[in-house]
Design a protein around this nucleic acid. Structure first.
Lengths: 230, 230
DNA sequence: GTCCGTTTGTGAAGGATTGCACAAAGTCAC
DNA sequence: GTGACTTTGTGCAATCCTTCACAAACGGAC
C-alpha cells in the first residue's frame, strides 16, 4: 500500500513524543485518513493490534518498516548534482529510513570533486563501476531532461531495477524495471486548479469557498508529506 | 482531474516536436494511461476532438491550460531558501506554466539579501506585506519542520488559501484552505517496497521479477513526473 | 469470576473508477 | 457523391476502493 509510509511517519511523530500505544482513531487522524481504512490497511500486514487498547507504537513501526523493506540498508546513487541533487543529498530523512547515499555523480567537470553532504562528487564515467562495487540498488535521476534517458539506459544495463526520476521526461525502460516520477510543478497546477474553482464558485456558485471538488480528494491532508530540510 | 497536468506535459512534448494533431491512442501512450480513460477525461472538458482525425495539439493545450487555470498569472511566494527552496526558485517549468515567483523569503540573516534566480531573498518579516502588495495567491513552504506550522498560520491569516508544503509535518489549517504535501522520501520507500518484493519473489515466488504488485499501480509510468532542472 | 467500557478486525453496502466494445461522425480518395 | 477507413464519444459491465456497522476480543474494576 502506498499509504504505509504516511502511517509510518505519523507513528514516528508519536514515538518522538513518547506515546506508547495509539488507537486506530487517533492514528487515522494524524495520518489524515478514515479509521476503518487504516485498520483494514494494517490488518493486511497481520493482527498487530490489541482490542480494547490499540496498537503498540514501537512494534507497529517495526512491522511497517519490515513490510516496506526499510529494516535493511539500501544503497542509493544520485545522478545529477544540480540544485535538486544537492537538496536530496542533504536531506536527513533518507538515512533515518535505511537509505544510504552511496554516490553522487555528475557529468560537469566543474562539479566533479566538490564535497557535498560528506561525499565527493564523482564523474559519470564511474556510474557502472559504482553501481557494481557498492551494491547500489536504487538510482535517483536528477539530471536535465536531455540526459535522463541515456542515464536510465546505462543504469538498467548495469542491472538496476528501481529508478526515481525527477527529470521532466517519461522514461522508457525494459519490463521488470520500476520507475517512479516526482513532479514539483504538477502539485502547483493542482493547487491552481482548486484556486480557480474557488474563484468561480465565489462569483456565481452556491457554496462559497468549498474545500475541494468531489472526486479530487478529501481535502487538506490527503496527500504525502515530508521534505528536504531547508 | 489530477491527470490533466500529465496530459498537458505529454502534449507540450508533442508540440515541441512539431506534431499538430494526435490520436487518443498515441496521447494515451505518451501519458501512460488507457486510451478510453483519456477520451473520457477529455470529454468532460467538452468535445474538442475530431472523429477520424484526433485532437489538435495546440487547441487541446489551450483548453486544458484554461481548465487548470494556467492561462492566468499566478504569483507564488517561496518561504524557506535552503537547498530545496533554491532548487524550486531555479526551476524553469514554473514560469512556462503561468507560475511567477513573486518573492523568496527566509528567516536566516545570512541568506537574506542573496540573489537567486533573479530575485533578492527577503526577510520573513515582510511575509504579510509581500502577500498583500504582490497579490500572492499560492505559498510554497520549504522551511524546516519546526517553522512550517507557524508560517502556515501567518499566511492563512494573511488570506492565503492554497499551500504547497514540503516540510515533514502535517499542517493544521482552517476550513477552506487547500494544502498539498510533497514528500521525496515516500517515493523512495515505495521503490524499496517493490525492490524487496522482487527479491522475495525471485527466491520462492511463482513469477520472478514481476513489475509491481496488484493494487499498487499499473507499473512504470503511472505517476507524475517533471522536475527541477539540475 | 463477572460485568462494563473500549477497540480491533471484517462482512457487506455503497460509490467511484476503469476498460471494453460499439455506434456516430468525420476524412480522404476517386 | 460514395464508399472505405479512421477516430471520437459513451453506455455498460466489471473491478477496485471506501465507509459503515457490528460482533469478537481485550483490559480493568470490584
Amino acid at each position: 500500500m502506498a499509504r504505509l509510509p504516511v502511517y509510518l511517519r505519523a507513528l514516528n511523530g508519536l514515538a518522538e513524543r513518547g506515546i506508547a500505544t495509539v488507537s486506530s482513531e487517533d492514528l487515522a487522524a494524524s495520518a489524515g485518513v478514515n479509521s476503518a481504512k487504516l485498520r483494514k490497511d494494517l490488518s493486511h500486514l497481520g493482527s498487530y493490534g490489541t482490542r480494547g487498547v490499540g496498537y503498540d507504537v514501537d512494534y507497529l513501526i517495526y512491522q511497517i518498516s519490515r513490510e516496506l523493506g526499510l529494516t535493511q540498508d539500501w544503497a542509493v546513487a544520485i545522478v545529477g548534482v544540480g540544485n535538486l541533487g544537492r537538496a536530496l543529498a542533504n536531506y536527513g530523512g533518507f538515512a533515518s529510513r535505511g537509505f544510504r547515499i552511496a554516490s553522487l555523480l555528475d557529468a560537469d567537470p566543474e562539479v566533479v570533486g566538490d564535497r557535498i553532504a560528506g561525499l565527493t562528487v564523482e564523474h559519470i564515467d564511474k556510474l557502472e563501476s559504482v553501481i557494481r562495487e557498492r551494491d547500489v540498488s536504487i538510482v535517483v535521476i536528477a539530471t536535465p531532461a536531455t540526459s535522463a534517458q541515456e542515464v536510465c539506459e546505462r543504469v538498467t544495463r548495469a542491472g538496476i531495477t528501481s529508478i526515481l526520476n525527477f527529470a521532466p521526461v517519461v522514461l522508457t525502460v525494459p519490463d521488470g524495471v520500476d520507475v517512479r516520477k516526482v513532479d514539483l510543478s504538477i502539485e502547483l497546477q493542482i493547487l491552481a486548479f482548486h484556486e480557480q474553482r474557488k474563484a468561480v464558485g465565489a462569483a456565481g456558485g452556491p457554496g462559497g469557498s468549498a474545500q475541494v471538488g468531489p472526486g479530487i480528494g478529501p481535502g487538506a491532508g490527503n496527500e504525502w508529506a515530508e521534505a528536504v530540510e531547508a
